[in-house]
């Protein structure tokens, strides 16, 4: 039961004027190593991604990761699923670069001294070692996103979900972050507006109005998405 499975998942959210449906009766099995979710703003693709680690709970239906029900085994699922967010600054929670990585390692490496060594070697592999004592707010957006990625991967997840990780970055930094993501051993679920990135995946889901509008080959999916935007 490796991989991610959505079984008839519906998500509704409270809003001022009553509940709104964000995802309706979505079913899918994601086992490919590189999966992209594309679609317009507000289509529900971020919510679909957030279901995978329990950031959003399904109102009905079942989400499982490697056979584990996300709603029953949240902590176990979150140890498997790493999540990279769009906004680099909001996911850095500790004052300095080294402390932020150390926070991720709290569970994995209980010994303080050993943890410090691990932090430095991780930072070194991202070319951030010289910034260990720097405030996370003094970093550029690209460096922040790399650090966030390093913090997520430090927990050694088996699946990485990234919600528009390159949207706020310049071209150069987008390329750096994207190359890091595509070099991962792990399964990658990538929410993106960057169609070039979608084309690098093995499978692409087009989300429209809370449902899967197309699911299949990247080239065909991107083509479907382009046409759905062109014709009103």
């Amino acid at each position: 039961m490796a991989g991610i499975s959505f079984d008839d998942v519906t998500v509704t959210a409270e809003a001022a004027g009553g509940d709104v449906v964000i995802l309706r009766h979505v079913s899918a099995e994601l086992t490919e190593r590189r999966v992209a979710l594309i679609g317009g703003n507000g289509s529900g693709k971020s919510t679909l991604a957030r279901l995978i680690n329990g950031l959003v709970s399904a109102s009905s239906g079942v989400v499982t990761v490697d056979g584990l029900d996300v709603s029953d085994e949240g902590p176990a699922v979150r140890r498997r699923v790493g999540f990279v967010f769009t906004q680099p600054a909001a996911q850095l929670v500790m004052p300095t670069v080294a402390e932020d990585i150390a926070l991720s390692l709290r569970r994995l490496v209980p010994d303080k001294h050993e943890r410090q060594q691990r932090v430095l070697s991780i930072l070194d592999s991202y070319g951030l070692a010289h910034l260990a004592a720097t405030s996370v707010h003094a970093l550029s957006g690209g460096q922040q996103q790399l650090l966030a990625l390093a913090g997520v991967l430090a927990t050694e997840p088996s699946i990485v979900v990234a919600d528009e990780p390159t949207t706020l970055l310049d071209l150069r930094n987008s390329v750096i972050v994207a190359d890091r993501l595509f070099a991962l051993e792990q399964q990658l679920v990538l929410v993106t507006h960057d169609l070039d990135l979608a084309l690098r995946c093995e499978r692409v889901l087009v989300i429209e109005d809370g449902a899967i509008a197309f699911d299949g080959e990247p080239a065909a999916a991107v083509d479907h998405y382009r046409r759905s935007v062109a014709t009103p």
Partner: peptide, 15 residues
């Protein structure tokens, strides 16, 4: 909320 989600995603609060 974003910070809370990031903490949550990193498993902080689960322990």
């Amino acid at each position: 909320y974003e910070t809370g989600a990031a903490l949550h995603a990193r498993g902080i609060g689960d322990d």
